[in-house]
Design a protein around this nucleic acid. Structure first.
Length: 481
RNA sequence: GGCCCCUUGGUCAAGUGGUUAAGACACCGCCCUUUCACGGCGGUAACAGGAGUUCAACUCUCCUAGGGGUCACCA
């Protein structure tokens, strides 16, 4: 059997968005699963839309996520070049082949005439398709226009009678009347091909066996098939993916900045979690398993698990999954991953192992770290009302004597590691014949200036250490009048 | 609007003629508890509507509605 070859063919028009990344993921998975080859091809035939640096973003994102390509612009391969703008001559040659066999024709129509025709069609409620005006040009007419230097495009010549049935692995067989198929432009005035020509030529020349792409290409697939036939080429297997939606009405788009891989990383998501989540958007393994490594996905992936309907991107679920990934990190990995955030709030000066123990089960995204740990490097101003706790029946007044007791205990106490510290404090609770919370609640407030902290008073004191704990406690007692 | 496609709880989804219609997220409650989490237990919630076919329809067919895609010298 022929070796499976899939490709990811993005346009360098900006950052890599989530939908694109998912397409790349599926194409990669399918290739790897079948011991095939995954190719990256950059589709930059629209000179005007290219964004500076976008190619690099594509390369780096694919590398960062582990979706490495076997062939591509910056890694080479036997079927290059892998950047379409560098393949201009190839497309021109193929367009000529089509013209020679009358599967395509030159069109000299001006944009004005086309716009006019379109307007007329719309006015009369008719559906616009190109009227094939230039198909009727005689050989002489064409030569005359050519020598006169008129610019032209090359259009696909699609027979308008009969139907075309095409096949997609997820949507099944679809039949459309050929009269609905427009004679689209294959080669533009500037000599660059359109997607219509380039994708067919490249997919064939690069030996792509499975075309995996978004549904937006589904309805023009019969046109591509006519091209394959005109060239005498074998059709690839098509696998069209449902769109990823932002909500019921709107799809996740590059605009609004809500959909790029980089954005999610900046918001504190782990790339592994993101990849795992998008794998499950529009695809189901058919089992209850939800947490997958890339390797696990490679084994589990199946085309039959792909869904046909659009899927709404659910940030809540992604966040949950991110928390799962954070918790699963080893201590060393967690510290390394969280380090930039520790530094941001000065937490890197404290016991990172203990911080890891406290923070890891409490985080959903990395960006929560600085806000949760802010109290460590700086004692916040706080209100005396924070001592109030209804269930424990504490307030600033009742807390004062307890805090004084705590101060003398903590002054005498030497070992500020968790267990001994906790034991000592619990001993005080027993001695004073109060509830845990009647000591620990006010104590946390007094040494962190915060009512809500990751962990409790014991953890806080342990992290702060004896000196800082006592300083804060004395200062808080002094303020409590 | 034409053409094509889709339709199970708020969301992701399993289900391929006979099920008490899974599971996960979210939400709610309880337990744990010095706060916040973690964890544990439990709960609310769905086959878009209508005709058929069939002994039997979430599963098949048709219609309606809703949603999506597409109709570029963009990909």
């Amino acid at each position: 059997m022929k070796q499976v070859r899939t490709r990811f063919a993005p346009s360098p028009t900006g950052f890599l968005h989530i939908g694109g990344l998912r397409t790349a993921l599926y194409a990669w998975l399918y290739a790897k699963q079948n011991d095939g080859v995954f190719v990256l091809r950059v589709e930059d035939t629209d000179q005007g839309r290219e964004v500076e640096g976008a190619k690099q973003v594509i390369y780096s994102t694919l590398r960062a996520t582990g979706l490495t390509y076997d062939e591509g612009p910056d890694v080479g391969g036997d079927f290059g070049p892998y950047i379409q703008s560098e393949r201009k001559q190839i497309y021109a040659d193929h367009a000529q082949t089509l013209i020679d066999s009358r599967a395509a024709y030159r069109c000299f129509c001006t944009k004005e005439r086309l716009a006019d025709e379109r307007r007329k069609a719309e006015k009369s409620g008719r559906n616009y398709t190109y009227d094939m005006h230039c198909l009727g040009l005689s050989e002489q007419d064409i030569q005359d226009k050519l020598t006169a230097g008129e610019t032209f495009v090359v259009r696909q010549n699609i027979p308008k009678d009969g139907d075309t049935t095409y096949s997609d692995a997820v949507f099944g067989d679809i039949t459309v009347p050929n009269s609905d198929l427009d004679d689209n432009v294959l080669l533009k005035t500037d000599g660059m091909p359109t997607y219509n020509l380039a994708n067919v030529v490249d997919d064939h020349l690069m030996g792509i066996t499975h075309v995996i792409r978004g549904v937006e290409y589904l309805s023009s697939t019969p046109k591509y098939n006519h091209l394959y036939r005109a060239f005498g080429w074998t059709l690839p297997r098509y696998i069209h993916l449902p769109v990823v939606m932002k909500d019921k009405q709107r799809k996740l788009s590059k605009r609004h900045g809500d959909a790029s891989f980089d954005d999610f990383i900046k918001k504190g998501y782990l790339k592994e979690a993101l990849l795992n989540y998008i794998a499950l958007l529009g695809w189901s393994p058919g089992t209850d398993q939800e947490i997958f490594t890339l390797e696990g996905l490679t084994k589990a992936f199946s085309i039959s698990g792909l869904s046909k309907s659009p899927a709404i991107f659910d940030t809540d679920k992604l966040t949950w999954m991110n928390a799962q990934y954070i918790r699963a990190l080893s201590e060393a990995d967690f510290i390394a991953t969280a380090m930039p955030y520790f530094k941001e709030c000065g937490a890197d000066a404290f016991d990172l192992k203990l911080i890891t123990q406290i923070m890891q089960p409490r985080l959903e995204t990395l960006t929560e770290i600085p806000v949760k740990l802010a109290f460590l490097s700086k004692m916040p101003e706080f209100s005396q009302q924070m001592y109030f706790h209804k269930r424990m029946k504490t307030d600033a007044q009742t807390s004062l004597p307890v805090l004084k007791e705590a101060l003398s205990l903590l002054t005498a106490h030497e070992d500020y590691s968790m267990e001994p510290l906790k034991e000592a404090l619990m001993g005080l609770v027993e001695k004073l014949e109060i509830k845990n919370g009647q000591l620990l609640w006010p104590l946390r407030v007094a040494i962190t200036g915060t009512q809500v902290t990751p962990g409790g008073a014991v953890e806080a004191a342990c992290l702060l250490g004896k000196e800082e704990t006592l300083n804060r406690l004395k200062a808080s007692i002094a303020k409590n009048k």
